[in-house]
Design a protein around this nucleic acid. Structure first.
Lengths: 217, 217
DNA sequence: AGTGTTAGGTTAACGCCGTTAACTAAACGG
DNA sequence: CCGTTTAGTTAACGGCGTTAACCTAACACT
């Protein structure tokens, strides 16, 4: 079949592959992303992919890296609307994280997914998926006095753990079953993202433990 | 080959399959657990497995369910050593969760892992992987006044999110790379489990936000 | 005793998968 | 004009989950 003498999109098969892989990942998760499927969508043979990527893992990780880069840029843009050092900046970051996880589930799952042995992966991503932004905002908020003084790295871990834990637990249990018999439930019609965000804010406000000054009262 | 007239372990091929599957999962993660590998270890053909389990997913989920049951029993035993309502009970639960996640990484990853579409899974597990125990202890601690009064379900979610987030983030980034450039690091020689546990306690103590009474000071 | 049914397997095969080896054809630099 | 690189091909290998069809021993029942 020698219909077209010129490669369809003028040369860059590589980005066509990345795009196809991204779409497949988004549509059907990791199991839908096979070398053969990607090739078919691009219009080449599976083996051609190996000219641009070492293997499937390499391809996937580059797809994911791309997604994360865009996500971090999004975060930076999102916080601009709120004043430096404000707690709203922290909140909007949490919201962004939750939204990204939900809207780009497959990306998210690949990164924090199964991977028998080798983790790290996040290293490849500049800013490590928003870590830089978050730390930045935490430091600002401390200097502004909006949040309690403490080791910023610990606080970052605190915030990140809560949002990340919230998201992954919810993903694993899927809303209703999650806390059956408990008072927590997603009101019908509310978006999962919005619900999680509210939980996040509640959890941050909880504080817990320090009965100290209140105990005697 | 008709060497043995009697099935090797007197009839229960099923539990032999489960055991083999469990071992393979523990040794090499999910990718090492193939029907053919399980069959080879048990000494049958792959297709025989389909007499006891619907498909691979069914097999895996039963293996995992077994592991979780044992884990919850472990938790109940662990808290016995500490007084009812004490914060130590909560701490030891967190520690148990962390330890289980690390020591049974493959189990843990299967449950909170990739699974393209269908989550829930935790429903099959009695007590939902320690949720029951945790809630029990939280209520006790509130009645005893050791922790701040609040909706127990929210507090449970708070604690669970922190531990779970901590564990999964660490697993995805693997210690050193996790917070490179940050002050947080696992001291050489310290176990990952111990380190995570310390973080957990720190995070719980943080509380955050309520500058309220302190702000003016 | 003979018969039907079920449990517990077997063999063979299908259609996927990731990956490799060997080859080809066009483009380009000297 | 030649050598190399780039971009792609075809053919094949071994492994995967799963299915269909078949076999065989054990048991239940008349």
């Amino acid at each position: 079949m020698e219909v077209s003498q010129v490669p369809p999109v003028a040369g860059d098969t590589e980005s066509a592959i990345l795009t196809a892989a991204r779409d497949l990942l988004a549509e059907g998760g990791l199991e839908a992303l096979s070398m053969r499927a990607v090739a078919a969508r691009v219009g080449t043979t599976p083996t051609a992919i190996y000219h641009y990527f070492q293997n499937k893992e390499d391809l996937v990780s580059q797809v994911v890296a791309r997604g994360f880069q865009r996500s971090e840029a999004h975060l930076w843009r999102a916080i601009e609307a709120f004043p430096v050092g404000s707690i709203e900046r922290l909140a909007v970051l949490g919201q962004g994280y939750i939204r990204f996880a939900i809207e780009h589930k497959p990306y998210f799952k690949v990164i924090f997914g199964i991977q028998a042995d080798q983790p790290r992966k996040l290293d490849d991503v500049p800013g490590r998926g928003g870590y830089g932004v978050l730390r930045h905002c935490v430091v600002d908020a401390m200097e502004a006095g909006t949040i309690r003084q403490a080791d910023p790295d610990i606080v970052v871990l605190y915030l990140w753990s809560i949002v990340h834990g919230l998201v992954t637990i919810t993903m694993a249990c899927e809303s209703d079953s999650l806390l059956e018999g408990s008072a927590i439930e997603i009101p019908d019609g509310e978006s999962a993202s919005g619900f999680l965000y509210q939980q996040f804010r509640d959890l941050i406000d909880i504080g817990l433990v320090p009965v100290k000054s209140e105990a005697t009262a």
